[in-house]
Design a protein around this nucleic acid. Sequence first.
DNA 1: TTCCAGGCGTATC
DNA 2: GATACGCATGGA
Length: 266
Amino acid sequence: MKYEICNNDIVLTEPYINLEQTLDCGQAFRWIKISDDTYSGCFVDKYLEISERDGRVIFVNTTEDDFLDVWASYFDLKRDYADIKAGYSQDPTLAKACEYSPGIRLLKQDEWECLVSYIFSQHNNIPRIKGIISRLCDHYGHFPTARELSRETPETLSFLRSGFRAKYVIDAANKVANGEVDLEFCKALPYEEAKAELMKIKGVGPKVADCVLLYGFAKVEAWPVDVWIKRVMQTYYPDGLPECVIGTQGIAQLYLFNYVRNLHEE
DNA sequence: TTCCAGGCGTATC
DNA sequence: GATACGCATGGA
């Protein structure tokens, strides 16, 4: 990781990140493109504007402390993606997927926000997921805590227009607020045990749990299988995943998901 | 109009 | 344990 301090900004020169590929690939739902080269977003109570110019990423008006304590972790800056992608290049499909969007990185998101977001994601599409979460945050002025959401009912959340998912989010809020599911504790558990804990929540099945394990807990062995990844498996890997992804399947999934979803649109 | 969307709970066998 | 079906909402 290499960076410079420029006036009030942090300019990241290494590693390479593509902001559009990373912030708008469907792993996080709250980043907003506010100009040609700039996004705004949050991690818990930290607000960030971040720009990409001439291949460099600029953390606008950001202290070195916040950069090192919050954003370096959030953007997974210490992981060696060049090394990971070199391993993936043994597989022709993954080689194409990495070439298609080489600047994707895993975002290590807040686990509670991640849990709620992916409960809303089920049987839904990305623009609509963003709309629901945007209405939720506008309503509270921030992403609501579990305690705040535990006071809601499906009726009081009807403004979200989130359909049958509202009751699941309320169940998650209740279980997290009363300690029945302890996300901090889950984070420290091994993959399988953490997954079983998350699946105590109504509306959290294997796929949503894997998304929280990957995007919220940064457990890169998680392998969320949605409709797109099912198609990937049928089309490219009928006999199972290639050896070169074992251990970091979650990161491979980011590249593959983005690749096939855009192939479909073209 | 019909189909589908980063699935899951439930009923049924 | 596996398979089928309904589910709120909205865009294509």
